[in-house]
Simulated assay, not measured.
Amino acid sequence: MKEKVVFYAEAEDPEMIKAFYRAQETFPYFWRELHWEYRRIVPALDLACVKVAFMQEVPDRATPVVEHMWVNDVEFDGDHISGVLINDPNELTNVKNGDPVKVPIDQVSDWLFSTRGNTYGGFTIQQLRSTMSEEERNEHDDAWGLDFGDYNDILLAYQQKEHPENLIEHPMSVNMDESFIEFLKEYPLEITNRDAAGYTLLHKEAIAGNRGSVATLLKFGADKSIQTNSGKTALDFVRQLGWKHIVPVLEG
């Protein structure tokens, strides 16, 4: 990514606060795409990062210092986002560029991925672009090296206009079902294995919003009652992340 031209907006700006909330609400789409990206042999994404609000208490200040900065190499466990900070703070001294970080999802203020010439997400970016002149927008986009398109038309899922069903189920979840079945037949222990935090494959596919994979795992005997070390089932995660299309599968 090229060095970016920075445009600032007041944190109290109600439109920017709406952008923060919209980014949090739709973050599962970002994670769903990244989940599949990590399973691809040939990468499809040109860029994938999350903007996070970092805070620090400072003596003689009534409110904490807050800076919104980008994180890449993102992982997500359904509750917390982890990754590597890729910005230099302006005022904060409790984090620095290159630090590993882990924050709850309610500290997300934006997310962005790009592929095949299109950008997805970028709610705070688009809000800033909406306040710029055409010349400023061109300068901004050139600095990022991306085409952000229409700031009034923010995309969430790949080819969602051509295939609106992609907003419900990721196309790879549909296309990879047969190979997933073969994988489970060859490695049946993957159905019951739990990682150090107590997550099963069912938890992970549920968090990623993959209805097909969840249904297949249940057919192969996955136990939907298993809880993570933090006490959550796969159904708990799909409910809190808004994957409504998977709720009936896990409730049945």
Rank of each mutant, 00 (worst) to 15 (best):
M1V: 14
K2R: 13
E3I: 15
V6A: 12
V6I: 15
F7M: 08
F7Y: 13
F7L: 12
D13K: 01
E15K: 13
A19H: 00
Y21F: 14
R22G: 15
F27A: 14
E33Q: 06
L34R: 04
W36Q: 00
E37L: 11
R40A: 11
R40V: 07
K51M: 09
M55W: 06
D60E: 11
D60A: 12
V71E: 08
D73M: 06
D73C: 04
V74M: 09
D77V: 05
H80D: 14
V84T: 14
I86P: 00
L92T: 07
V95C: 10
K96Q: 10
K96P: 00
G98M: 09
K102I: 08
V103K: 13
V103P: 06
P104N: 04
P104D: 07
V108F: 03
W111F: 15
L112A: 14
F113A: 12
F113I: 15
S114N: 06
R116E: 15
N118E: 13
Q126L: 15
T131R: 02
S133T: 14
E134A: 13
E135C: 05
E135N: 10
E136F: 08
E136V: 09
N138V: 12
W144Y: 13
G145L: 03
L146K: 00
D147E: 07
Y158L: 11
K161Q: 09
L167K: 06
P171V: 04
S173P: 01
V174H: 09
P188I: 06
R194H: 14
R194A: 14
D195I: 05
A196D: 14
Y199L: 00
Y199W: 06
Y199I: 00
L201H: 07
L201Y: 10
E205G: 06
L217K: 06
L217H: 03
G221N: 03
S225P: 01
S225Q: 02
T228V: 06
S230R: 07
G231H: 02
G231V: 01
K232H: 13
A234R: 01
D236R: 02
Q240G: 11
K244T: 08
V247H: 03
V247R: 02
E251H: 12
G252V: 05
